[in-house]
Simulated assay, not measured.
Amino acid sequence: MAIEERPSPVRRFVRRFLATPEELDAEELQRDAAECGSTPACDCRRGQLVTVTGRLRTVVYTPRTNLPTLEADLYDGSDLIRLVWLGRRHIAGIEPGRLVTARGRIAFRDERKVIFNPYYELEAPRP
Score class of each variant (00 low, 15 high):
P68T: 14
E28G: 02
L18K: 13
L80Y: 13
P63R: 05
I81K: 01
S78Y: 07
F13E: 15
Y75S: 01
D79K: 01
P21E: 13
C44S: 10
V50G: 07
L49Y: 10
R89G: 11
P68H: 14
P7R: 14
P9M: 05
R15A: 14
I94H: 02
P118T: 02
L49C: 12
F108V: 06
I106P: 00
L49N: 12
P21A: 04
S78L: 09
R45I: 02
D79N: 09
P118D: 08
D73F: 05
D110Q: 10
A72D: 10
E28Y: 08
V50K: 04
V52P: 01
P127M: 08
R16F: 08
I81P: 09
I106T: 06
L24N: 09
V52C: 13
P125H: 07
I106K: 02
T51I: 09
R46W: 09
A26D: 15
N66Q: 14
E28F: 08
Y75V: 01
K113M: 10
A26G: 04
M1I: 00
L29W: 01
P40S: 03
T65G: 14
G77R: 04
L74H: 08
I3C: 01
T39V: 12
I115S: 08
R16I: 05
E111S: 13
L86N: 01
R45P: 00
G54Q: 10
R45M: 11
P21I: 00
Y61R: 13
T58C: 03
L122H: 02
R88Y: 13
Y120V: 11
P63H: 09
R45F: 00
E123V: 15
R57Y: 08
V60Y: 05
E4W: 00
A102H: 03
A26F: 08
G37Y: 04
R46V: 05
L29E: 04
R89T: 04
K113D: 01
E23V: 14
R31H: 11
Y120S: 11
S8P: 11
R64V: 05
M1P: 12
V14C: 07
R31D: 11
I106R: 01
E95H: 08
L83D: 13
A41H: 03
F13I: 11
F17G: 00
T51S: 15
T65I: 06
I91H: 00
V84M: 09
R109P: 00
R15Y: 12
R112K: 12
A2T: 11
R126D: 03
Q30F: 10
A26W: 09
L56C: 02
Y75K: 03
T39W: 00
R12C: 06
R45N: 04
A102M: 07
E35W: 00
D25H: 11
P21K: 02
E71W: 06
F17S: 10
R98L: 04
E4A: 12
F108P: 05
R12Q: 15
Y61L: 15
D110M: 00
V59R: 06
T58R: 02
E23S: 12
C36F: 14
A41I: 11
E22Y: 09
V10F: 12
R55W: 06
F116Q: 02
T65N: 13
L80E: 10
T58G: 06
I81A: 01
P7L: 14
I106A: 06
G97I: 07
E27R: 06
P118Y: 03
P9N: 07
A2G: 12
M1H: 10
F17N: 05
D76W: 04
N117S: 13
F17R: 14
D110F: 07
P118L: 10
